[in-house]
Each structure stands twice: as C-alpha cells, then as structure tokens.
Simulated assay, not measured.
Amino acid sequence: MQFTPTQKRAASWCLLTAFISFALWLLAPVLTPFVIATVLAYALTPLVDWLDNVGNRRLPRMLAVLVVELLFIVVVLAVMLLVVPILVKQLPLMREQVPVLLDTLNSTLKPFFAQFGIAFSWDVGSIKAFMLKYLNANADNAFASVMTSLKLGGSVAFAIFGNAVLIPVALFYLLTDWHKLVPRVLLFVPPHMRTSFDSFTAEADAVLGQYLRGQLLVMLVLAVFYSIGLALFGLDLALPIGVFTGLAVFVPYVGFGLGLILATLAGFLEFATSAGPTKAIVMVAVVYGLGQFIESLFLTPRLVGERIGLHPLAVIFALLAFGHLFGFVGVLVALPVSAVLLVAVRRAQAHYLSSQLYQKGGQ
C-alpha cells in the first residue's frame, strides 16, 4: 500500500506528538514547577513590560522583574494568610460550641425520630470527650504531630519546599529573558507554517488575555460581595472568609465549595448560642446562593464565558480531566489550556468545512 506525501507527513506528526506526550507524562513531576513558572511568566510579562515603558526603558528589566515577582509573592502569601485568622478564631469557638451543638443536635433528633417510633440515642458524653481531647491539644502536641508527618512523608515535604524555591527562581529567569526565549522557540516552526502559527498564537493570546482580565474582575467583585454580605449578617470573620471565597473562585467550583464550608462552619459556631443554627443556614443560603446566581448569570458569562465560549459541561470535564492527569496544578490551568484547545478545534473545524473532502461529501 502506497502512502501519499501528505499522509506520510501527517503520520510523522502524529508519531512525534505521541512521543512528546509520553515523554511529558513521564517527566510530569519534574516539569511541574517549570510549567507553573511558564504560566506565571506569560501572565506577568505584560506587567514587567509596562514597568519598562513607564521608566522609558531606563529601568533595568531585572529590577522590574524583581518588583513584579516580589509583589506577586506578597499577594500569594497574603491570600494564604487569610486562613490564619479563620483558624485562630474558629479553634477556640469549636472548643466552646461543640458541646452545645452536640446537645442541641441530640435534643432535636430524639423527638424527630420518636415521631416515627424509632428510639434514637447516642453517647453524647463520649463524643464530647473524643472531640474535645483533640481540640484542647496544646501547641507542643500539634507541633510534634506536624513533625512526625513530615518525617513520614519526607519526600512530599521535600517536593513542596523544593517547588517553593524552584518556581520563583525559574519565574525570575523566564521573566528576564521572555522576549529572547519566545523568538528562539518560534525558530522550530517551519517557514511555510509560520503565517498560520502566528495567526493561531495571536488568537489564543487574545482569548487568554480576555480570560485573565475577566477572571480578575470576577474575583474582585465577588470578594467585595461576599465580604459585605457576610458582614451584614454580623459574622465576625466576614472579611477574611469573603475575600478568600472571592479569590478562590479562580479555581471553579472548588473555590466556591471551600468558601461555603468555611462560612457554614463559622456561622454555626458563632451563632450557636445567640441566634441558633438557623441564622447560619439563612446566611449561607442567601449570601452564597445570591453570589452563585450573580456569578453564573451575569459576571462569568459577560466577563469570561462569552469570551472563551466553553460550555459548562466542557468546563466540568476539563477540570476533572486535567485534575486527574496533573493534580492541583491541572485544575488551575484547566480553563486557560481548554481555551487554547478550543481555538485549535475551531480552526480545525473551519479548515475541514472549507476543504474539498467536506465539499465532496456534501454532494
């Protein structure tokens, strides 16, 4: 059987793609910090270029890179530290309110099951003692537990700390030499494909830029909304939980779920003795229900969804697929990568619809 040059070329590209994909799969643990640094460099390069332009190119690029990277690290640490006041506030409340909540739950469930002739009973005292034993543990025991976990999972701890150092270093070099590295990569594109490749990358870059700008606006609006909404119900931790929920929306569904759990737990613990758990349920239902409604029907469609064009089912599938293949990093990059793949699919579809093969099939 004879193959045409076009078929041979297509087969070669398929084999090359399969080989590269297999190599990337094998090297995924090693490549992860570099992939993260590359994504961050792509997102932060415009800010570095802006600082260069503001300084009329008199500001050394290395200094602009240092300023941008330090600002980024500060923002990341600030987001992570939002959890600290939540834990500091919640742990003492849990020690105080858990016994009360257990008694309330016990007194509520017994009459409910009694209506159906079910004799419901549980050992509230033992459950209280079990939970309070761990909630009342001192800092020394907690520190010892953490150290034991680090010893048992030394490789995991080493990987975390190694990535925490490697990612900023790789990001610094990528931001510094970004405009030198990109042209070198483009040299691997065959000259006869350069026009199509440049057109594709320009469209993908526009889609990703719109996605990032739209997502940042959505995060800012939701952070303000959740903070104000929780504060109106009198929640002491309204600001950290609201800001955390708004910023965590960057990870679709997962961020909203974490914020919902934190707000529910904080509401139950804070309102247990004053207004009862009903106020916590109403607060979460109103604030997070309205927030999800606003995000789904107004913010995301107008600022993000319409610009990317991904169906909700495609979003869910992308999150599950990338999360399964690449872990938490995959969840973070699922939507941007899916947006680029969508551009490729659109171009492939347009090429097929305009091809002679499709036109002959329609005759």
Rank of each mutant, 00 (worst) to 15 (best):
F130L: 13
L132G: 12
K133R: 15
L135M: 13
N138K: 11
N138A: 10
A139Q: 14
D140A: 12
D140G: 14
N141S: 15
N141R: 15
F143Q: 14
V146H: 12
M147L: 12
M147F: 03
S149N: 11
L150S: 13
L152Y: 04
G153I: 00
G153S: 07
G154Y: 10
S155T: 13
V156P: 00
V156G: 11
A159N: 14
G162S: 05
G162F: 01
N163E: 11
N163P: 08
A164R: 10
A164P: 00
A164Q: 00
V165N: 08
I167T: 11
P168V: 06
Y173R: 04
L174I: 03
L175N: 12
L175T: 02
T176C: 05
K180P: 00
K180D: 14
K180M: 07
L181I: 14
V182P: 02
P183T: 00
R184L: 10
V185N: 01
V185D: 02
L186C: 05
P190S: 04
P190N: 03
P191G: 06
P191Q: 07
T195P: 03
T195F: 04
D198C: 01
D198Q: 08
D198I: 05
S199I: 09
S199W: 07
T201Q: 06
A202V: 02
E203Q: 14
E203V: 11
E203R: 15
D205V: 00
D205L: 05
D205K: 13
L208A: 07
Y211F: 15
Y211T: 10
L212I: 14
R213T: 15
R213A: 15
G214I: 04
Q215T: 12
Q215D: 09
L216T: 10
L216Q: 03
L216W: 07
L217F: 10
V218Y: 00
V218G: 07
L220Q: 05
V221M: 01
V221C: 03
A223E: 03
A223P: 08
F225G: 04
F225Y: 15
S227W: 06
I228Y: 03
A231P: 01
L232Q: 08
L232H: 01
F233T: 06
F233Y: 06
G234Y: 07
L235F: 01
D236R: 09
D236V: 09
L239H: 02
P240E: 06
V243K: 08
V243N: 08
T245F: 00
L247T: 12
A248H: 09
A248F: 15
V249A: 10
V251Q: 09
